[in-house]
């Protein structure tokens, strides 16, 4: 994005947006608001890792098992972010979801392609095909949390905190959202990296946070910090 953004930059300062809760899943590890929620060495398979996190999180949601890897990761990250806070005070239409990744739904695309590779066993599966769009994870998060506001899925080669901030800032400036989940949900084979944050207006936030975690100003630097430090 161009750097000539002076008007937006000024408004950004006035907006005073905060990261009021975050979750980072990466390398068999789950961090929620600076605290280690889950870690286990030597899990080699993504499926085993994400199932262990689901079990530990103790959310009873059988549909979880039907989801594709990206949806599983995004869903659990959103659950963990929202467990420590609440969005119930917001109107469902005023809560947004802005997610991004590098490979779109390629991991599941390959799975669907497997079902149509051979003409002798040609059985495309609707429950696989439906996940061959990156924004289905947004749908899953919205269904679970009754979120009905602005939603978009963006693609960038690598994590782009500035892109997310610019997009989410515009939503707040135009009064399209009062709270917004935003982040990065990337899964390819057994590798996954997901960051989910809840962004709220400093003056209108719904909770005072958990001990030991200080709200962070919502900006690209802090997003980059969370995704690289943890």
């Amino acid at each position: 994005m161009a750097d000539a953004m002076l008007p937006l930059y000024f408004r950004k300062i006035n907006m005073d947006l905060l990261i009021t809760s975050y979750c980072h899943l990466h390398d068999n590890k789950v961090i929620v608001n600076d605290r280690l929620f889950f870690y286990q060495e030597n899990i080699l398979k993504f499926a085993d890792f994400i199932k262990s996190v689901y079990k530990q999180e103790n959310v009873n949601y059988p549909k979880f098992y039907k989801m594709d890897p990206i949806s599983k990761v995004g869903f659990l990250a959103a659950e963990l972010v929202l467990k420590q806070t609440t969005i119930e005070g917001y109107h469902p239409e005023k809560v947004g979801v802005v997610l991004s990744n590098s490979s779109s739904s390629l991991d599941t695309d390959i799975a669907h392609n497997e079902t149509i590779k051979n003409r002798s066993s040609y059985f495309p599966s609707p429950s696989v095909f439906v996940y061959t769009l990156p924004n289905i994870v947004i749908g899953e998060i919205c269904i679970k949390n009754k979120i009905k506001g602005e939603n978009v899925f963006l693609i960038s080669e690598t994590f782009n905190g500035k892109l997310l901030c610019d997009y989410v800032n515009e939503l707040f400036i135009n009064e399209r959202v009062e709270a917004c989940l935003c982040g990065w949900v990337e899964v390819m084979g057994n590798n996954c990296n997901a960051l989910m944050v809840l962004v709220e207006h400093a003056g209108r936030k719904q909770n005072e946070g958990v001990p030991g975690f200080k709200f962070l100003p919502f900006n690209a630097e802090n997003l980059n910090l969370i995704i690289t430090l943890n």
Binding site: A2, M5, L8, S104, N135, F153, L154, D166, E170, N174
Partner: peptide, 25 residues
């Protein structure tokens, strides 16, 4: 800027472009 949001992608792309133009970016 790449938008992949199922069948609303095209409208979202126009909306996004228009917001970034209005903001002066």
């Amino acid at each position: 800027l790449i938008i992949s949001n199922a069948c609303i992608s095209g409208v979202v792309a126009l909306m996004t472009a228009s917001r970034f133009l209005q903001s002066g970016a």
